[in-house]
């Protein structure tokens, strides 16, 4: 009995094959959900990134419940008040944790070691979050929302975006708040987290020499 030699598989020349090879090269599956971190990560200051993500999860779930039940529920019933407040306070926590995370990464110069895109996507997600929070204030359907929108309209119209971002148009602001900005935030934060997984957590000053002088040392030094 003869055994035929396996036919070597030619690498795909299509865009799907090229994309797959690049994704597997840049984001090895065994590094996406690591169970070990560098020893310097054992500090409270490294906790605020994941605290921000946890707060965002509460924001999304409570916002989803508000979308299902509607304003007559969240303005009138006690359970609606509770979920409405949960949505507000999770946003407060999200913004506070994100700003502390920003302070920490700024003073660490976290763009070091080819981490520029991690920093840039973090900054963009911060800007998108400000837009999402702002449109949230505009769709409270109360006097506060009316006051904020009339205070903001002239400034936004003067920079020429009033047609696509009309703060007096409740329907448009609601769509920005619950569709467009969450999509933008989700995409940017997703890329940000993948960049953290790709480049690893930035080392403290003085500890980066190991990365530069001995690239064969695994990036994820165990603790």
């Amino acid at each position: 009995m003869t055994v035929e030699a396996p036919v070597p598989v030619e690498p795909s020349t299509g865009w799907t094959g090229a994309l797959r090879r690049r994704v597997v090269r840049d984001l090895p599956p065994d590094e996406l959900l690591p169970d070990k971190q560098p020893v310097y990560v054992a500090s409270w200051i490294y906790v605020f990134g994941v605290l921000t993500l946890a707060a965002l999860l509460v924001v999304l779930v409570s916002g989803g419940i508000l979308a299902i039940r509607g304003p007559q529920w969240w303005h009138v019933s006690s359970t609606g008040h509770f979920v409405n407040s949960l949505h507000l306070w999770s946003v407060e926590m999200f913004m506070a944790f994100m700003v502390i995370h920003l302070w920490a990464k700024f003073f660490m110069a976290a763009w070091r070691g080819k981490r520029a895109m991690t920093w840039v996507t973090g900054a963009l997600s911060f800007l998108a979050s400000i837009g999402a929070a702002f449109t949230g204030y505009l769709v409270q359907s109360n006097l506060d929302a009316q006051w904020i929108s009339t205070q903001a309209k002239d400034g936004l119209n003067s920079v020429g975006i009033g047609a696509y971002f009309n703060v007096l148009d409740f329907g448009q602001m609601l769509m920005w708040h619950i569709v467009l900005l969450p999509l933008v935030m989700g995409a940017i934060i997703g890329v940000h987290v993948l960049q953290v997984r790709r480049r690893g957590v930035v080392p403290p000053f003085g500890a980066e020499t190991m990365e530069e002088t001995a690239p064969e040392v695994p990036r994820q030094v165990t603790r």
């Binding site: 020893v39 054992a42 500090s43 409270w44 200051i45 906790v47 605020f48 506070a96 502390i100 302070w103 920490a104 603790r223």
Partner: peptide, 17 residues
């Protein structure tokens, strides 16, 4: 909170070199 996060010891961090 930022200053406390810098100063407070992280649980278990003293067991690792």
């Amino acid at each position: 909170i930022f200053v406390l996060a810098l100063l407070l010891p992280f649980p278990g961090s003293r067991h690792h070199s």
